[in-house]
């Protein structure tokens, strides 16, 4: 007589990924974040269109390889995409990823819906797992939306051409696409740190903004510390130290050492943060 669960209930069937996708999709901030990913290339494109005397201020060269990326941005669709990615990598993408991961659990807690999900019961680890996968999915969608829109707009406006950089020779378009995908993948990997941190904070606090803001804040702090050369080799351990390693993908042959180190750093940090998040969440008293 005593069934261990209600008919039709199966722990592994609770909180289907699709349900969580819909939960998040209906939210205004998800729509805004994704919308901005489309909007940014448009804004950049318009800025380039209005800027007529850009060629004149080349001489400064203060930005090094970066300023040359800006100079090359209008040379073709691939370079425009690269520029869009480069300008958003240090902050915009960080915020979007922090939003996807930091908001997901904390907002449920602040609405009070978290306890009802747990009372269904959605096993806690499963809840976190599904939230993690869906947040990762949205982050990837954001990344690809940005790159895709940049590619589309850039190609329409500036044409299809090789991927140029001041670091090395031009890369033919076919391979250039692969390199861009590689850069996207590397961005995705480095952003794992932000994802991990935001997710952990999301589990620890009921304030969604606190989780998102905290993750971004710590990320910026790490970037600032990375600028201080006096710290020496300690900087190698900073999560944002290898952020620029994607530039290695622009040279021929590809410089992979820093990419690998950056990936290791990001994977290790993310694993630590996520592990702590899972450990904490599966044991904590949900009081919200």
């Amino acid at each position: 007589m005593s069934a261990s669960a209600a008919t039709g209930y199966k722990a592994s069937r609770t909180m289907p990924i699709w349900a969580e996708v819909r939960r998040q999709a209906s939210r205004r901030r998800t729509q805004l974040a994704l919308g901005f990913m489309v909007l940014l290339p448009v804004i950049i494109l318009l800025a380039f269109e209005f800027d007529t005397d850009r060629r004149d201020d080349d001489g400064g060269g203060g930005g090094g390889a970066f300023s040359s990326l800006a100079d090359l941005a209008t040379s073709g669709g691939l370079n425009f995409t690269l520029f869009c990615l480069a300008v958003s990598s240090s902050f915009l993408l960080v915020v979007v990823v922090a939003l996807c991961f930091g908001d997901t659990v904390a907002s449920e807690a602040s609405w009070g819906s978290l306890r009802y999900l747990l009372a269904i019961p959605v096993p806690r680890a499963r809840l976190l797992g599904v939230k993690l996968i869906v947040a990762a999915g949205y982050s990837l969608v954001a990344l690809f939306l940005l790159a895709g829109t940049g590619m589309l707009l850039g190609t329409i406006r500036y044409g299809w051409g090789p991927l140029g950089s001041s670091i090395a020779a031009e890369i033919p378009p076919g391979e250039g696409v692969l390199r861009l995908l590689g850069i996207l993948a590397y961005f995705a990997v480095t952003l794992l740190v932000v994802a991990g941190l935001a997710f952990l904070l999301s589990v620890l606090t009921d304030a969604a903004l606190g989780a998102v803001g905290g993750a971004v804040l710590l990320w910026i702090l790490s970037s600032i510390l990375d600028q201080i050369e006096a710290l020496g080799t300690i900087r190698n351990a900073l999560p944002s130290h290898y952020n620029d390693a994607w530039m290695g993908l622009l040279s021929t042959p590809i410089q992979t050492e820093d990419l690998a180190k950056g990936a290791i750093s990001a994977v290790v940090y993310a694993t630590i943060f996520w592990s702590v998040a899972f450990y904490r969440f599966t044991r904590k008293d949900v009081t919200s």
């Binding site: 390889a65 670091i167 090395a168 130290h241 620029d244 530039m247 410089q255």
Partner: peptide, 13 residues
């Protein structure tokens, strides 16, 4: 091979 992405120095293979 190009510039080092992290310290802006040259990188050789």
């Amino acid at each position: 091979a190009g510039y080092s992405a992290t310290d802006r120095g040259l990188v050789t293979n």
